[in-house]
Write a protein that binds this DNA or RNA. Structure first.
Lengths: 197, 197, 197, 197
DNA sequence: TATGAATGAGGGTTCATTCAT
DNA sequence: AATGAATGAACCCTCATTCAT
């Protein structure tokens, strides 16, 4: 019977979505709380009802992002079928998300920059990539039969694949016309995995 | 009256070195002109004798970086010997530089972030990577005999290699203990190039 | 619908007590309506049901204080017995109150500060001290027989006594260990009144 | 030959004078840095070249005040002549200062309010009053011959006198018309010191 | 009566940039 | 060439006050 059923549950995603949009557009430093507020359709002061500071907004945004990314991993784990198809489905879904909101990449690079300077942030990233690589390695181990052509071990392969995806994403960001991300990814994956058995 | 008629040749590198150090440490946004000045042993106002603005310093710094990178490419071109050895020498030299100044990576990611937002900056990066890939592709084409194991064309291979290097660098930055950059690079390169003939 | 048709009689003292506590602790300027509300166990908005503004709370608090102080004067007037005993009983009672809530003194000084700037506030204080001095002077006149030792007229004595009490209170606040307020007051009073007949 | 011989030596007193005026007029809390800056004929940012924060300005102002007050004490110590005349000269000089800038009193009361809440501030005040009382007590002891009429010891007298001065100042602030500060002080002093020998 | 939610109007502080010397 | 001094323009965050329920 409270006035609003739960304003928090409504406002926080609303603010994060606004922040995401504005950060992507202008960067952390250039974005003023005012900008986020306007994008969210709220007053500046209202933001402070839900977040302690600008940094807190950034932090919440990244937490949200990682939660989504891990949910995505979960999907990969549960996709049925042969290894190559599962990997392909996963990478293509990732790419679809990138294409849907390419500006969001900028937030990622800013985050990398911070991570390169601060161990605490780096640690978060470390956990993230670690989990990715573990999951991938397990997947690769399970599908070893399909990987007879590769001379790398599953963990090495996992690292290589993650590196490839990150690297190709960067090249595509720089030159979306020149790099066909979907095809390059598929090809590179094939190159790394070796010829199908 | 000054003994050196051209203090510029002395001051500009001095300021850029200071800027590089401080940017690496604190990031573009967090760095104040004051910080650069102090690091350079000059007054704030003196910076403005040589640079029009803070952005101008950033810009000059990146220009300098790209000049160095292209010189590095030139070295790759002129290294004699078989393909794999040349590639290895080049990547190992790159890695040596990273290890010598890992904080500088942060500047790179900040630059990527800006590039992700601004076409003008993206264009600079595009030229850089394009030249890299062209050069590599040429190299690969020349050494085709050694690459019979790969199913990728030289340009595809070039893209893949650059992507791999960038991606592994990222993973190493995140987890320097967990990723042996030299070995991972060598292995991945091998994996991509296929078994030596 | 509420059982008590007049919640005001309950809420207003509740809020004033809260305000008194918080003002004493943090000062007028540092105290936020939020603080008063929390101390009172109410919501910020509820305060505005009973007070028009923060200043209104301050004002009501001071009004309350003066009412108490005048009631105290009334007690002095009605205390029976010889002059010196009555004065002593009164000052000792005052001191007991101070000792019970020394932080409240801070509110007084802030009020003096405002009074020093604003004639309207000064006027309130004027009425307060005027009444005090008139009352005291009357008392002293009635007990003139006991004051043969003093060379001051009753109104002069009254002024001197009030000044002494205020001044000693200040010194005691500054150095509670160093100033024995009860004794210093008694002694000073004796010194001013002259030797008992 | 530096551009300005020493801007600090010029600016700091200039800013403190401005702050003193504005604080007296509006109080600490109500005064904005902007106000001080305007009063000083400088920009807001210029204040921060000489003071770390608003609190720092307040602090410096009080330090300055105490330095002046102690210098005043020094004068008292060095005034020649009989006790009563010296005390009178001193109190009259004090009063002259009050009358010259009555608004400054407000700053004092705000400071008392802070002191009543914070031990650290209280300690500063304690040192101040302590020195006052020690100095006075010494003076009184030296002039004991003139004080045969008083039943209080020199330290007790000193405390009483300081309390009287502070208390009368307060009463005068509240009612400048009703309280003749010069006369009341002289009379009260006489009353306390007892009949001249 | 009571409150959770919201906001307009600042206020302290920072900083890139300019200027007088 | 060089700098100490100065400033205008922001920007983060706060808070008294209001409003919808």
């Amino acid at each position: 019977m409270s006035p609003r059923p739960d304003a928090r549950a409504e406002r926080i995603p609303q603010i994060l979505a606004a922040a995401r949009a504005v950060f992507a557009r202008s960067g952390f430093a250039q974005t003023r709380m005012e900008d986020i507020a306007r994008e969210a359709g709220l007053s500046k002061a209202a933001l402070y009802l839900y977040f302690d500071s600008k940094d807190d907004v950034v932090s919440a945004l990244l937490t949200q992002y990682f939660a989504e990314a891990f949910a995505d991993l979960e999907t990969l784990r549960q996709t049925p079928g042969p290894l190559r198809r599962r990997l392909n489905a996963w990478t293509q879904r990732r790419i679809a998300e990138l294409e849907a909101d390419p500006a969001f990449l900028a937030i990622g690079y800013e985050f990398f920059a911070v991570a390169a300077r601060q161990e605490a942030v780096r640690e978060v990233l470390r956990g993230y990539y670690h989990r990715y690589q573990v999951e991938l390695a397990r997947l690769l181990a399970e599908g070893r039969a399909e990987l007879s052509g590769s001379r790398l071990t599953p963990p090495e392969l996992a690292t290589t694949i993650v590196a490839l995806l990150e690297g190709l994403t960067l090249l595509w960001m720089v030159d979306p016309q020149g790099v066909n991300l979907r095809r390059a990814t598929a090809r590179a994956l094939n190159g790394v995995l070796g010829p199908p058995a």
